[in-house]
């Protein structure tokens, strides 16, 4: 019975099949954007948005429960705070070189993946914050509007 209900949640079979195929690719694309943020256009914020969109995509196609099983609200909020703390601690670690926000790691050669000092780390932190945050905003709005239907 519960399995029947699970199948009926969300959209039609076509959408679900396509989603199953594409959602992983979207997630990977988001990760790519984040990791190459210091080389190509993009970075933490756009990458985080794309990652959040992959979860939102899942939620639209399969219904709320499936997406929340992958990433529930408490864990998303933990990720969000962890991202913020990570960003702040990277910035504060600049104090080892004397200044707040100092880029204290070796810069490396331009156009290499491992270059630009703390920027890729900051991108990852921002991605965590933005991805989890945007997903949480979406979930909260969905929950709020569900509440009022009742």
């Amino acid at each position: 019975m519960s399995k029947m209900k699970q199948d009926q949640a969300g959209m039609t079979l076509i959408v679900k099949t396509i989603t199953r195929l594409t959602v992983g690719l979207i997630l990977l694309y988001g990760i790519y954007i984040v990791l190459h943020g210091h080389l190509t256009p993009g970075g933490g914020f756009p990458g985080g948005v794309i990652i959040a969109l992959s979860f939102i995509h899942l939620m639209l196609a399969f219904g709320k429960e499936t997406a929340l099983k992958k990433l529930d609200q408490i864990r998303a909020s933990l990720f969000e705070s962890a991202g913020a703390i990570m960003f702040l601690s990277i910035a504060s670690l600049g104090f080892v070189g004397g200044y707040f926000f100092l880029n204290f790691i070796g810069k490396g050669r331009p156009f290499n993946l491992f270059s630009a000092g703390t920027i890729p780390l900051c991108n990852i932190a921002i991605c965590l914050k933005v991805g989890a945050g945007l997903f949480l905003i979406f979930v909260t709005l969905v929950v709020l509007s569900k509440m009022e239907e009742r």
Partner: peptide, 13 residues
């Protein structure tokens, strides 16, 4: 915008 929409939904509630 997100905050405003959340407040608007609660107001509708």
């Amino acid at each position: 915008t997100a905050l405003l929409i959340a407040i608007a939904i609660r107001i509708y509630d």
